[in-house]
Design a protein around this nucleic acid. Structure first.
Lengths: 197, 197
DNA sequence: ACGCGGACATGACAAACGTCATCGCAGGTA
DNA sequence: TACCTGCGATGACGTTTGTCATGTCCGCGT
């Protein structure tokens, strides 16, 4: 039996995944958690063979959890096939990456192959990640964009990051250029959709 | 047996919900579809007793589908508990509204109660919907905001909606005022988070 | 030691944005 | 009929952006 832990914040989705996996003869769901910051404790307690992690979770991002679980067999199961996520996930040493609109068979296959020591990446995602490439944004640019994404003004961002307004404008301008956008809002959308934030 | 149709665009989620419901002795999943515009045909073919609809789907919004299925027993199962969604769902005559982070038992209970002719609404959501109230935005204001949400400039919006730039600015200004925001981006966030778009 | 690039800053300017006052026109409603 | 509301428009205004030129400082690789 492959012992699996499922981490996802939405109960229905988490329960659904668990039910789905439990239908398989060789897979057993030994634990379910709904918050990123509860994963480590659950892993210590239940010692699963494979850990399924959603990225968007309260408490701690699935990517952060994956970094801290380096050495364990982690499979990221997420809604958004953002190329940037894949890069960060691989850097965190995950063994698999599956998007939620993949066929069910792909998930069970991923669990088994990861269990066998293989690395499983959604092919479509791999292509788009290689096409889009890594984030061209510097840390600062990403930081400023992230702060701007809630609709904050330049002055707000400057206060929040302890920068001058002029500097903030420069970073925004540079980020707008790099994303190929025509203004702040568009830059935010682009960067978000690619997982650069 | 309660015959159920499940509509959700994410295969893993859809399969998960189906697996979850199939575990119940009195529930049978007779069809699954992944696009809003395929629901009607599937309903005609399989004649389910209860129809589970996600809101965000390609092809056609679950809310639109619900309107066209008026008379059928429809349960909205969605990620976002946006108050505005609940209002529109009820206006569309749905029999139930469940958010995806509700406990699993709530979903099966909802299916059974809807089958029995009851109307089931997530209590937390009902409260927030009554607290937040209906959208204060006029159709035009919502339209302009929606168009602006992708990062479009005033000129873009004006061209797209066949309005004058000045008029667009007026609508935006009015929407910003009504949402209590301090600029366009913030207004978009607020309106989106409440389901007013 | 040198050059390079990233982080940070300043100041200036044009374009875009947000606000206001004001207007005309339709459709309901008192 | 008179009134109100929503839609559409105009013009004017001050503010906020986005861009650019320019400069300093620091860390890194050769």
């Amino acid at each position: 039996m492959i012992r699996v832990l499922v981490a996802d914040d939405q109960e229905l989705v988490r329960g659904g995944l668990a039910a789905l996996l439990s239908l398989e003869d060789d897979i057993e769901v030994v634990a379910e958690v709904g918050r990123g910051d509860q994963v480590e404790a659950a892993v210590a307690e239940h010692r699963p063979d494979v850990i399924l992690l959603d990225i968007e979770m309260p408490g701690m991002s699935g990517l952060t959890v994956a970094e801290r679980l380096r050495g364990q067999r982690v499979v990221i199961v997420t809604t958004f096939g953002r190329p940037g996520y894949l890069g960060r996930a691989l850097a965190a040493g995950v063994a698999g990456f599956v998007v939620k609109d993949a066929p069910v068979a792909e998930l069970t296959a991923a669990v088994r192959r990861v269990m066998a020591g293989e690395t499983v990446i959604d092919p479509k995602l791999a292509v788009s990640a290689l096409t889009v490439g890594p984030s061209p944004l510097t840390q600062r640019e990403a930081e400023v964009l992230r702060t701007a994404s809630g609709g904050a003004t330049v002055a707000d961002i400057a206060r929040h990051l302890f920068l001058t307004e002029g500097t903030v404008r420069n970073y925004l301008s540079s980020a707008i250029g790099k994303t190929g956008a025509r203004n702040r809002a568009e830059a935010v959308r682009v960067a978000e959709s690619r997982g650069w934030l």
